[in-house]
């Protein structure tokens, strides 16, 4: 109750000024954060889902906070209109075609609005503009997809492990890869095949000529037609010939395919040790087939009925060469 002296008044004044100063400073700092005291630019955007956005949440452009959410109104069952108050200083950097999306600030952070520029020319934004929006993949949806991919990945790595395990345990493959004999065989059979095809070509030409002569009623055709035994022999030979050439062609095609596309049958190859054996057998067969073919061609040449014909042919060739 004592009358206040000047010094107590000064101290009281200082006390009050300090307290109010704290309040004003804090209000100003928050206000600055919320752009309450700066001039602001109000724009709107319609969203389908705002994922828990609240008034006061930040609006960001390229990760920089440039404003806050001012209002959130439900327009109808599928549209939420969000009013944003942006810092006027950023006006030149936001174009009319900027796209707004709802995002989160970190994994457990606040919901925010991200503005993204679109690489197309447009005039700067103006107050009251309506921004376009996109709905980015929501975090839960993203996690859902992630889950599925994860499961797939688990299956794949499981398979991969099985494959490598088999790869390590498979002698066949390593033998196959290390087998020099096989390569040599292959080369040999290919050479045989080349010889055989050359012979085949020649034989085909001879048969053609033979047929030609037959149509003209020349040569040993009449004889031939009467001799049934020879005809049977001849039919047998040509059938064998055709068989051999078919087998050869098939073998060659399959070989070619296998050498050209190593990825395709890899799995089968690895899984099936019988195949390499078969492969070797096939190559052996092909070899034997081509050898047999050469032999039958030789025999055909030495056949006494056709001996004259072949001899004439040789003479003709010699004459042609003599010219």
């Amino acid at each position: 109750m004592a009358a206040p002296s000047a010094s107590t008044n000064i101290r009281l004044g200082l006390f009050v000024a300090l307290g109010l100063g704290c309040l004003i400073a804090a209000l100003f700092l928050i206000g600055q954060k919320q752009n309450l005291f700066g001039s602001s630019l109000n724009v709107r955007a319609d969203f389908r889902n705002v994922s828990g956005l609240l008034t006061g949440n930040n609006v960001r452009l390229s990760g920089i906070t440039i404003g806050t959410v001012k209002s959130i109104d439900i327009l109808n069952d599928s549209t939420v209109r969000v009013g944003m108050s942006l810092n006027r200083e950023v006006q030149p950097f936001i174009r009319k075609n900027a796209v707004a999306s709802v995002g989160t600030d970190g994994l457990v952070g606040n919901t925010i609005i991200n503005l993204a520029a679109v690489p197309a020319p447009a005039p700067p934004i103006e107050p009251g503009d309506m921004l376009r929006t996109t709905t980015p993949l929501a975090l839960d949806a993203m996690l859902g997809t992630f889950n599925v991919s994860n499961k797939n990945l688990v299956a794949i790595t499981g398979d991969l492990r099985q494959v490598t395990h088999k790869l390590n345990g498979s002698n066949a493959l390593w033998q196959l890869l290390n087998d020099q004999q096989l390569a040599a065989d292959l080369r040999l059979s290919l050479r045989h095949a080349a010889t055989a095809t050359a012979g085949l070509q020649a034989a085909a030409r001879d048969v053609q000529q033979l047929a030609h002569g037959l149509r003209q009623g020349q040569g040993p055709a009449g004889y031939l037609l009467t001799d049934k035994e020879f005809a049977g022999q001849m039919r047998h030979t040509t059938r064998q010939l055709a068989n051999a050439s078919d087998t050869l062609a098939a073998t060659l095609a399959s070989l070619k395919k296998q050498t050209e596309t190593p990825n395709g049958p890899l799995h089968t190859l690895l899984a099936d040790t019988a195949l390499s054996r078969q492969l070797r057998q096939t190559i052996g067969n092909a070899e034997r087939g081509t050898a047999g073919f050469s032999q039958s061609m030789e025999a055909l040449q030495h056949n006494f009925l056709l001996r004259d014909y072949f001899r004439k042919q040789a003479k003709k060739q010699a004459q042609a060469a003599g010219h």
């Binding site: 109750m1 004592a2 009358a3 206040p4 107590t8 008044n9 101290r11 009281l12 006390f15 009050v16």
Partner: peptide, 16 residues
């Protein structure tokens, strides 16, 4: 006013 100021001093400042 005087008493209010003096009470502000006593109750406010002196509790600081």
């Amino acid at each position: 006013w005087r008493e209010l100021l003096s009470q502000c001093y006593v109750l406010g400042y002196q509790s600081l």
